[in-house]
Design a protein around this nucleic acid. Structure first.
Lengths: 244, 244
DNA sequence: ACCGACGTTTCTGTATACAAAGTCTCCAAC
DNA sequence: GTTGGAGACTTTGTATACAGAAACGTCGGT
């Protein structure tokens, strides 16, 4: 009965840390992001409880929070499942993120101090390196870190929190709908030029840069209407990935 | 031990409906909105459970969801309390709502059918009437209904859901920071002219109309820096409103 | 009168038990 | 071969018990 979290759970308990609902939320979220838990996966409370070594109470709280974050769906008297955002929702999520992240970038332009800019510049650099090495997981991690930094430094904290959510949701659908043959969703010019605009303080250029970047990203996805496939999968969805 | 929900609970149970976490969420939300539960109010799980006639399990789920909606704060091993958004957060919430609702209005301009427009027109009409009669609660209800309709009809459902959240959050801070002497936050021209733009299909005019409307609303609030008062209240916050 | 230690009370965190709803399987009937 | 249904099984909904943390009040000392 191998679980994909064994090592991390062992590490956490060794470290004296108690497994809390937050721990479970983080792990499930990451597993969904990396597609180790594909959409439609059943997440029964007892199974999760056994895996993490806690009772259903804790698992229930974690699932409730994951549902609030749109990571899983919870219907009365039914097993929670990993959510499968539709193609339409994917487009809408990208549009929402363009609006919000564009605004955040505009607010941020010219307002970051040297240290913050340097941090971002370093990440941009490391992302390029990782791409050159063909280390896609590392590249994704650095790319995500850049966007999360924007959210974190947003002068408007409310927008920042909304952006954090949207980054997560777009990441999930990117993983879901990445064009089959595509090795990477890397756009070499975008992050460096964003950095330039943030530095120079041109708010509208920064906004446009972000919006174009996100639109290009969306266009890298395969959002053609094989929606039937997804729907069938969601309905018949029998796969498991938790117990086994 | 009078609770502010007695009648509604009785009605619900008479109707055969079982009290669920959703019921509790709705009631608490509304009570916060109408300031019957002022910021800082303690919300102990057992007390709520007694009032609603359910066990802590149900209350806990409700509180978790209210926390996800930013209505209450939950800190480990401490009683949940009604959240007291700061003045800064209030400003940020308004800015976020201007961005999102402006976009929704722009998307909606010229895309509503006659029936939907008629529904909104009727609400605008009734809001004006309620204001004329001095029936402020009714006016607020109709005003909120207008904005919620925008959110509901948003072509972009993701943005629509975000807008629903933001409407709730701004409503709470409006109640909180309404200038003392002010009887009403009514801006006679704004809703009718929004309707005009939605009808004519001028997206940018609709966007601007919403943004101006929300900015005017924000300016009606008393957001001067008596922030100390709020902070003290949150810290000493000893008031109760649930048990009694 | 003020301050700090200590015991009491209150409240949350977690596990668990039981009931109700949903799901699956198998078998008979068409 | 497909449909329909009875039963067993699985899974969630809710209540409750107990342990531990925080808040509160009291009492002694200064």
């Amino acid at each position: 009965m191998s679980s994909i979290w064994q090592e991390e759970i062992a590490a956490e308990t060794r470290a004296g840390g108690r497994i809390s609902d937050r721990f479970i939320v983080d792990k499930v979220r990451k597993a969904v992001l990396t597609q180790r838990l594909p959409p439609g996966t059943r997440l029964p409370e007892v199974a999760l409880g056994d895996i993490f070594g806690v009772s259903r109470s804790v698992v229930r709280k974690a699932l409730t929070r994951l549902a609030a974050d749109y990571v899983v769906t919870q219907q009365p008297n039914q097993v929670a499942r990993v959510r499968a955002p539709s193609i339409e929702e994917t487009r809408e999520t990208f549009a929402a993120r363009r609006l919000v992240e564009g605004e955040v970038a505009a607010l941020l332009a010219g307002r970051l101090d040297e240290e913050q800019l340097a941090t971002i510049a370093a990440l941009v650099e490391r992302e390029a390196e990782a791409h050159a090495c063909g280390d896609e997981p590392a590249r994704i991690e650095h790319s995500l870190a850049i966007h999360h930094l924007l959210a974190e430094h947003s002068p408007n904290r409310v927008l920042g929190a909304m952006l954090t959510d949207l980054i997560l949701r777009t990441s999930i659908v990117i993983a879901l709908y990445k064009r089959a043959g595509l090795a990477s969703c890397y756009l070499a010019e975008d992050h460096p030029s964003l950095l330039t605009h943030l530095h120079s303080g041109d708010a509208e250029a920064a906004r446009r840069c972000i919006r174009d970047h996100l639109e290009a990203l969306e266009n890298l996805l395969d959002l053609s209407v094989r929606e039937t496939r997804i729907d069938l999968m969601a309905i018949l969805g029998q796969r498991e990935g938790v117990t086994e």
